[in-house]
């Protein structure tokens, strides 16, 4: 009986994912209304539940892709993978008002540069404080603090060891998860109300996944504005990490 059920779910991976995610979103909506009286957004709760399930999935399978590593839920990997994620982000651009985006263009660019350099400095300093004194390791960990893609790309380019790479990826993943969770909580403090503020946030907070999930849990209308800027984050980081930033760190060490 169970085998038949598992086979059906496996053979229809993406459809199973739609059903599972729909159920999680439904449960989160109910928790939001009944237990927090709408004070905590349903999507924020859904993302938290998702992260919890990812932990369980990772523990049970020993893999790196959370729940998606369990055969039963392999469709989650497709639904939440880069292809559909980017497809859905691009679709949200349909609701962007171009004049709003244009007005915040330059401040978004400044935020983007700051959002690349500041986390890098923090990462490098923390690495140094914990005894990583060679330029390659410090740069790789610093790059991981930009996003979890910049970290390994930089590390691979300058020849970092695999444990430093793992550390750098972990830094980026923790950062993305922190942004997802803390954005709706800190939305007032961050003044996340207008398209312009969302673009500043997108530039500074980095990581498309963190920014878009955080904004989705705060105010869905702001998602495209944040994403528009955040999507340049990884590219800029991969551009500067192994080149300019590495040379600066090497000169300083």
């Amino acid at each position: 009986m169970w085998e038949i059920f598992e086979k059906a779910a496996k053979d229809n991976g993406l459809v199973t994912a739609f059903a599972v995610v729909g159920l999680v979103v439904f449960v989160s909506g109910a928790i939001s209304r009944k237990m927090t009286f709408g004070r905590v957004q349903g999507s924020a709760i859904a993302i938290l539940i998702g992260l919890g399930l990812a932990y369980l999935g990772g523990r049970m399978s020993g893999g790196t892709k959370g729940l998606a590593d369990l055969a039963l839920f392999s469709g989650i990997g497709l639904m939440g993978g880069n292809m559909l994620r980017d497809f859905a982000i691009v679709a949200t651009a349909f609701e962007v008002r171009p004049e709003e985006a244009r007005r915040a263009g330059w401040i978004g660019a400044i935020a983007l540069v700051l959002g690349t350099i500041l986390p890098f400095i923090v990462g490098v300093c923390v690495a140094r404080a914990f005894g990583y004194s060679d330029a390659v390791s410090m740069t790789t960990i610093g790059a991981g603090a930009i996003t979890y893609i910049v970290g390994p790309v930089t590390g691979a380019a300058i020849g970092a060891s695999s444990d430093v790479m793992a550390l750098s990826i972990a830094t980026g993943v923790i950062k993305a998860i922190l942004v997802m969770i803390t954005t709706p909580i800190a939305a007032k403090f961050l003044r996340l109300k207008t398209p312009r503020s969302a673009m500043v946030f997108g530039g500074l907070a980095g990581t498309v996944s963190g920014v878009t999930a955080g904004l989705a849990a705060t105010d869905r209308k702001l998602v495209p504005y944040g994403a528009l800027v955040a999507t340049f984050h990884t590219g800029l980081g991969c551009l500067l990490g192994p080149s300019l930033l590495y040379l600066i760190v090497r000169a300083l060490v």
Binding site: A17, V21, V25, G50, L51, G57, G66, L67, G80, S209
Partner: peptide, 13 residues
């Protein structure tokens, strides 16, 4: 978009 993000959260390491 939001359901996709939830699925994305489910496969974080």
């Amino acid at each position: 978009y939001i359901p996709v993000v939830v699925a994305m959260a489910m496969q974080q390491n």
